[in-house]
Structure formats: structure tokens, C-alpha cells
Design a protein around this nucleic acid. Structure first.
Length: 486
RNA sequence: GGUCGGAUGGCCGAGUGGCUAGGCAGAGGUCUGCAAAACCUCGUACAGCGGUUCGAAUCCGCUUCCGACCUCCA
């Protein structure tokens, strides 16, 4: 089986064969949430996308160290040096300790990630836990001559850096373009260059989150933590660095500059960026006011939602689009995904009960290979799902007696479902029932069969319609009656 | 304004030169006591206009519209 994996690299603008620096080990860093408010569904999409990548790499046998940070030191509200950090701002408003805010939203984030069945990262480092590493990195960058101090704050000297390196390597822009198209913001008097960004910021007296450093009591700049923590846990150079597409021009660009200034190495070889979740064609974002939260989507408790959708329906919906495409949210699209997901899960429920024949009408190996081909082509989950509906058709046909499958192929089919549906796509069958329900339903179904035998269709239909109303669907076939949750 | 990306059938969404995914919705059929489910069949969709080519949704040019980034953002 050919299992060459190709990954789209933002750095080179093309798909490249994935070859880890130190196979079978893979280092992957993903920029995580800033925990000053609830993560919305757009944020969740990114983490689901990287969960797919993490799961597939693991499935292929790689030993992945997946590092995803928690930004709890707070990004600045703006790049202006009098900017206040978001976490401190929220804390003052709520009359809470900053770390109380951090704790609340970190716990909430973890809960949502678990509900969406994303695997926890191998390491989830916090910015506040790595102040020392960040200070050390600032020192190194200062020694290298790519930073300067003004009034206790340290700034990265982009123009000087660009003389020796290519600052715009990630988004393909040259420095002159950037300089000519940067807006002039107030409060940047301390900076020498328009593109310079803060590595360390001297805190105002009223600032809540601050730490001592050689230059001032202050706090780290907003790109530094990722450089410091990826370096600490994954080394000077690792395999994959990821995040949302909106991080490319500023955050990741500055991260690369910091790491190169520090270690003279581009920190990661493959830069993977996920596209945005949109609503009516516009990026979901808090500031636009078009965002909604996971629990609102699950419950339907938001004015733009017609109804609630289960967490796995949401996950399935997102995996039906490729991670590098925008995905537009709509109630219609969600309902389509909900039905499709149920069809898939209903078929999988039938899988255990399938009987093997001595002959087979289907061979699973080619289907299995197509599933791998899909994922090997830059984690193409929508194509994978299309193949899984082929598996669905096979399962249903065998169940209906319209198709035969032998033991070996049935076994392969079960392996395929386990591998791709559960292990790689990370879907769960939400139709799992309580212990007693199957036995109770068997009893009721038998009762109805007796009524049918007696041609008492009034009673049999009453039972069927009644169960339908409760949310349990009966299906008659020659072999008897089966049921499933709607 | 600058840079980049997108426009696929009723909806969502794959697809980079010929073999024209998939889901949902819709039509017909099989099955069924009737249904439901399932299975089978059906849609010649690729923003517009030119061009390259034996052949283009796919390559090139222009036009229109939309979006992202340039300011925190997954």
C-alpha cells in the first residue's frame, strides 16, 4: 500500500510529501485559544481540523507530540504600547483575579473540546508558566542585535532583521509593500519602525498581570509565547506548525522572525493553516457579532439557529468540508449533515449483525485504499466521507440480502469503519442506548409481530406510530423488524 | 487603496485538461398489508466574455460579484 502523505505547506504554496525530521516522531505545534472568553464555533473548527491531522498521523504510526498552548497572559488589545491586555481588562470588569478568568475559560474550553471528541494535546503549555523562557528568548534576540530597548520595553527590529532574512517569507510579501500599506496607529512612538512589534512591554502601575524582568516589571509581547514554548517542547526545528489562516500575516510571520533571530532556523518545516467558518459568507468573529457558541449550537438557543444539532453532527458537518476551504454555516447545511450522519451511523449499527457468506460480491481492499488516498491528499476528509457512504451502501445491501460478502471482506469492512469513522474522523455513535432499552424494544417488537400475524394492523400501526413519535423508528424486512433512534 | 483567495446543479460540498465525488432536497421504480428505512434509476452544474487545445469546471487574459489580511482574531 502506498501511504505517501502530502501536505499543503503555506511556506511553499504547494503540497509536499510529508517526511518527518526524526521519524517516527512528529512534532506539531498549534496555536491555541486566548482564554478571556468562550471559544466560538469558528475557533472550534480549527481545533477539529488539527484533531483530524493528529489522529491520522497517529493512525499512520507516527509518535506525535502535539503541543497546543493556552494563552493566559493576554494579548494586547492593540499593538499600541498603552494597550491593555484582554485578560486584565476582563478581570477588572468582572472584579475577578485574572487567573480566575483564565481558569473559567480554560475549563470551558476543555469541556467543549471533549464534547466535540477532540483528543487532548500531548502538552498544553500556558504562557504564564513560561515567562522565564520568554525572557530568555528576548535576551537572545537582543544579543543577536534584532531588538532594542525603549523605556523598559523591548521591540523587535523588523527592518534590520529583513536585511539578513526574509521577513515576509510566509505570506509572500516584501517589506516595502508591508511598510507602504501599514496603517499608522497611535501610541507607537516608542517604535523605530512601523512594523516593529513588542517582545516585552513595561507594565503600567495599574496593570494586573506583570512579572519582573531585566528591563522592567512587565509582560511578554503577544507573539513570543509560541516561539518560546514551541522551542522548549519541540526544539529549534520541528515538523508541523499550525493555526487559523488569520494568523499567517502577523502572528506566524512574527513568530518565524523571532525564532530565526534566536536560532537561525525556520521553526517548522510544514506550515498548515485552516480556513475560516463563515456565516452568510462572512468570517465568524466576535467583533462582527455573527459568532455563536458550541452550547448554543447544541441546544439551538441562538436566534440564527432553527434548532439544536448534536456535537457529532457538528463535527461531521465540519469534516464534510476540506480544512483549507471556507465552510459556510447554514441551518439547511446542518440539517443535511444531520441526516447524512444518521444514515452513516444507522448502517454502522447494522454492521455487527451482518452474516458472512461463502462468496462475495464486494472486495473491500480497493475501497480501503481510496480512503487512504483521500487522507493522503492533504487530509481530504470530504472525499473520505464520500467513500464511507460507499461502505454504507455495501452494509445496507448486505443487510437487505441484496449483496453477499465473505468473512474476510466483512472483517476488512469492520476494520475500515473502525479506522476511518471512529479512529481518524473521531466520530461517535450517539445512538448508544441505555442497557434496558434494547430488551424492552425487543419485547414490544415481538408483541407487534404477533399482532401483524393476526392481521391486527390497527394495533401494529399504533405501536409503530407511537414509537415513531417517541423517536424510535421500526423497519420491517423479511428477516424481521429492526429499530433505530431517529 | 494594497496583497491574496474564491465564484460548482435547489442547498452544502469534492474535483486542476478527457473517465464528469458525496450528502441533503426532488422525480420514478423495487420491496412492504400500508408505511418507513433500504436498494436501483434520473439532474449533462461549473459567474460572464474571449483565448490556448483534438478536447477545459480544470490552463491564460479581461469583466462582474464576494471574501480574507493590512488592526486583536482560529
Amino acid at each position: 500500500m502506498n501511504q505517501s502523505l502530502f501536505v499543503y505547506n503555506t511556506l511553499t504554496h504547494q503540497k509536499e510529501e510529508f517526511t518527518p525530521i526524526n521519524a517516527p516522531h512528529v512534532g506539531m505545534y498549534v496555536c491555541g485559544p486566548t482564554v478571556y472568553s468562550d471559544a466560538h464555533m469558528g475557533n472550534c473548527r480549527t481545533y477539529i481540523s488539527f484533531d483530524l491531522i493528529f489522529r491520522y498521523l497517529t493512525h499512520l504510526g507516527y509518535k506525535v507530540r502535539y503541543v497546543r498552548n493556552i494563552t493566559d497572559a493576554g494579548h494586547l488589545e492593540s499593538d499600541a504600547d498603552e494597550g491593555e491586555d484582554k485578560i486584565s481588562k476582563k478581570a477588572k470588569l468582572a472584579q475577578l483575579e485574572p487567573m480566575e478568568i483564565v481558569q473559567k475559560y480554560t475549563v470551558g474550553f476543555h469541556e467543549v473540546m471533549q464534547i466535540l471528541n477532540t483528543l487532548p494535546p500531548s502538552i498544553e503549555p500556558t504562557a504564564t508558566g513560561h515567562i522565564i523562557e520568554q525572557i530568555e528568548m528576548v535576551k537572545t534576540i537582543l544579543e543577536a542585535g534584532y531588538a532594542y530597548e525603549v523605556n523598559g520595553s523591548i521591540y523587535f527590529d523588523v527592518e534590520k532583521y529583513n536585511q539578513a532574512h526574509n521577513y515576509g517569507m510566509l505570506n509572500g510579501r516584501n517589506l516595502d509593500d508591508l511598510l507602504n500599506n501599514t496603517r499608522n496607529l497611535g501610541g507607537q512612538e516608542e517604535k523605530r519602525g512601523k512594523l516593529d512589534f513588542a517582545l516585552w512591554i513595561k507594565a503600567k502601575p495599574e496593570h494586573l498581570m506583570k512579572w519582573p524582568s531585566p528591563w522592567s516589571v512587565g509582560f511578554p509581547g503577544w507573539h513570543l509565547e509560541c516561539s518560546a514554548m514551541s522551542h522548549k517542547y519541540l526544539g529549534e526545528q520541528f515538523d508541523i506548525h499550525g493555526g487559523g489562516l488569520d494568523l499567517v500575516p502577523t502572528h506566524h510571520t512574527n513568530e518565524i522572525a523571532q525564532n530565526i533571530a534566536c536560532c537561525d532556523k525556520v521553526p517548522a518545516r510544514y506550515w498548515v493553516h485552516t480556513n475560516m467558518l463563515t456565516v452568510n459568507g462572512q468570517k465568524m468573529s466576535k467583533s462582527l457579532g455573527n459568532s455563536f457558541l458550541p452550547h448554543e449550537l447544541f441546544s439551538g438557543n441562538n436566534k440564527i439557529l432553527n434548532k439544536g444539532y448534536s456535537p457529532m453532527t457538528v463535527r461531521f458537518f465540519m469534516l464534510q468540508a476540506h480544512y483549507r476551504s471556507t465552510l459556510d454555516f447554514s441551518n439547511e447545511a446542518m440539517e443535511a449533515s444531520e441526516k447524512g450522519f444518521k444514515r452513516l451511523m444507522n448502517a454502522i449499527t447494522l454492521l455487527d449483525g451482518l452474516k458472512a457468506s461463502s462468496t462475495t460480491d464486494v472486495t473491500i481492499a480497493p475501497l480501503s485504499q481510496r480512503c487512504y488516498d483521500a487522507l493522503n491528499d492533504d487530509f481530504n476528509s470530504p472525499v473520505l466521507i464520500a467513500e464511507l457512504f460507499e461502505a454504507t451502501r455495501i452494509i445496507n445491501s448486505v443487510h437487505d440480502g441484496k449483496m453477499k460478502i465473505d468473512a474476510a471482506n466483512l472483517d476488512e469492512l469492520k476494520t475500515l469503519i473502525q479506522n476511518f469513522v471512529f479512529d481518524v474522523l473521531g466520530l461517535k455513535n450517539e445512538q448508544a442506548t441505555g442497557d434496558d432499552l434494547p430488551r424492552v424494544l425487543d419485547f414490544i417488537v415481538n408483541l407487534r409481530s404477533e399482532a401483524k400475524t393476526n392481521r391486527d394492523y390497527a394495533t401494529s400501526d399504533k405501536i409503530r406510530d407511537g414509537l415513531q413519535h417517541i423517536g424510535i423508528q421500526l423497519k420491517d424486512s423479511k428477516e424481521g423488524t429492526t429499530w433505530s433512534k431517529i
